[in-house]
């Protein structure tokens, strides 16, 4: 392949993206997910993750998860230095297998929620949240 100027730019752009998402963090996220699912297949029906499309500040981002019937829901932010956010374990008196909280996001990234169902199956949902940067760099 002849390396054109455009290719070089694309390669540079690619490595810039890779630099933004360190392998270490991605691997840690995969590890956290594997620890929760035991490596089982993960479906996509029956779970809802609500998060703002754009967060005004990454320090306090409101999110909600809901997976009717789930035993537990784990929330992962793969773009954070540590990917784990929270695990909701629902007891017999949870009226809905759902919860809301406020989380920190180090930058624009996909937030992932995975639910464990009583039959041992897993389902997941993800939402991209764009994290904005303040005006004067302040």
């Amino acid at each position: 392949m002849k390396l054109t100027r455009r290719h070089t730019l694309m390669l540079a752009a690619g490595s810039a993206v890779a630099a933004l998402l360190p392998m270490r963090a991605a691997a840690a996220a995969e590890e956290a997910i594997a620890a929760f699912t035991g490596g089982a297949d993960v479906g996509s029906e029956g779970i809802t993750l609500t998060a703002p499309e754009i967060a005004e500040n990454g320090n306090t981002v409101p999110i909600s998860v809901s997976a009717p019937g789930a035993e537990a829901i784990i929330i992962i932010a793969a773009g954070n230095p540590e990917p784990g956010v929270a695990t909701f374990n629902f007891g017999p008196l949870a009226a809905a297998q759902a919860g809301s909280t406020r989380i920190r996001l180090a930058g624009t990234q996909d937030v992932v929620a995975i639910a464990r169902m009583p039959d041992g199956s897993f389902v997941q949902a993800s939402r991209e949240v764009k994290v904005t940067i303040g005006g004067c760099g302040g």
């Binding site: 306090t60 540590e82 784990g84 929270a86 695990t87 909701f88 949870a94 909280t101 406020r102």
Partner: peptide
């Protein structure tokens, strides 16, 4: 409910 919390909680 029983929530395990990580440093990413605000």
């Amino acid at each position: 409910i029983d929530v395990q919390m990580e440093p990413a909680i605000s």
